[in-house]
């Protein structure tokens, strides 16, 4: 029977697909583990930094620092440009991961445009860049060299010029579209407003310990604020990498499971057909023998 052979071919091909998705799942799992470790390892720095900055800032100081100042809206004569940094992955096959980030970025671009800003886009990761190029948007800059292991240097190389331009009142707002890595199964796309710097919440009590400050609070802040801003992007990069691996693992696990189900159904059909064929052949033989004896 011809279909029998066709079935055999399909079984083989589904089996191969399953092997591939299974391998990708395993690869993503091991990369996820490492990415997760990096997210955890990055926490103490961010936490300590926000604590210290919250300790140092006083309302009068806040008014003095460009990075803490909220520029007026374009309609009120403020800077007319805003920057959205979109972080996506360089590779696909991660379920809805990149699509969700792109959707979030579009939403933010529309919102900022509605406020009167000319939105400039910085794309990190091939997938986001590819999409916005396809719909005909230009980029202020694009990066695809930041792979699975983002470093603080990567973050600084993107952020530094933005910090300068923001301080000079050329840019009104900088936002980062990233995946927030809450857990392996929960990493929603989010937008973080990086500039102006949102003051980290003051520790309970509010009283700052009586420090000896060297030099003074102002100089300290001046040194630490850019650090803080850069670190926000670094964390966004690290978290998004972890979220990507988590999304890929889930997607590939589903694909493997589906392939398994399909394989089972196909094998059942194949065996039934094979048996039916044998039964028929026996029936024919018996029939033939009976006719000869008759």
């Amino acid at each position: 029977m011809a279909t029998n052979r066709a079935l055999k071919g399909r079984i083989r091909s589904v089996n191969n697909t399953r092997k591939i998705t299974r391998t990708m799942e395993l690869v993503a799992t091991s990369k996820l583990k490492r990415a997760q470790d990096r997210v955890t390892a990055a926490r103490p720095f961010a936490q300590a930094l926000s604590e210290v900055i919250a300790d140092l800032v006083t309302p009068d100081l806040a008014a003095e620092f460009p990075l803490l100042r909220t520029w007026p809206k374009p309609a009120a004569g403020g800077p007319g440009r805003a920057v959205v940094v979109l972080i996506t992955s360089n590779r696909g096959l991660a379920g809805g991961f990149n699509a969700n980030l792109i959707k979030e970025a579009k939403r933010r671009i529309d919102a900022l445009s509605a406020e009167g800003y000319t939105v400039e886009l910085i794309g990190i990761g091939k997938k986001g860049v590819g999409f916005f190029k396809y719909i005909g948007r230009t980029f202020r800059s694009e990066r695809s060299d930041i792979g699975d292991k983002p470093t603080p240097e990567h973050a600084a190389s993107v952020m530094d010029e933005l910090i300068t331009e923001f301080a000079a009142a050329k840019i009104g707002v900088v936002e980062v579209v990233q995946s927030k890595f809450i857990s392996v199964l929960n990493s929603p796309p989010t937008t973080v407003r990086v500039l102006p710097v949102a003051m980290p919440a003051k520790a309970k009590g509010g009283m700052r310990p009586d420090y000896l400050l060297a030099p003074d609070a102002g100089t300290l802040l001046e040194a630490l604020l850019p650090l803080y801003v850069r670190n926000m992007l670094y964390r966004a990069l690290v978290e998004t990498v972890a979220a990507e691996q988590a999304a890929r693992r889930t997607a590939m696990k589903n694909a493997t499971d589906n392939a398994g189900d399909l394989l089972e159904a196909l094998k059942r059909r194949y065996n039934r057909q094979r048996q039916a064929q044998i039964t028929q052949e026996i029936a024919e033989l018996v029939g033939g023998a009976a006719a000869l004896q008759g």
Binding site: L56, P209, D210, Y211, L213, A214, P215, L220, A223, L224
Partner: peptide, 15 residues
């Protein structure tokens, strides 16, 4: 310049 800190130093913050 270099800064040395021993136990029970007064609260301090520096760049």
């Amino acid at each position: 310049g270099e800064l040395g800190i021993l136990a029970n130093h007064a609260p301090l913050m520096t760049v």
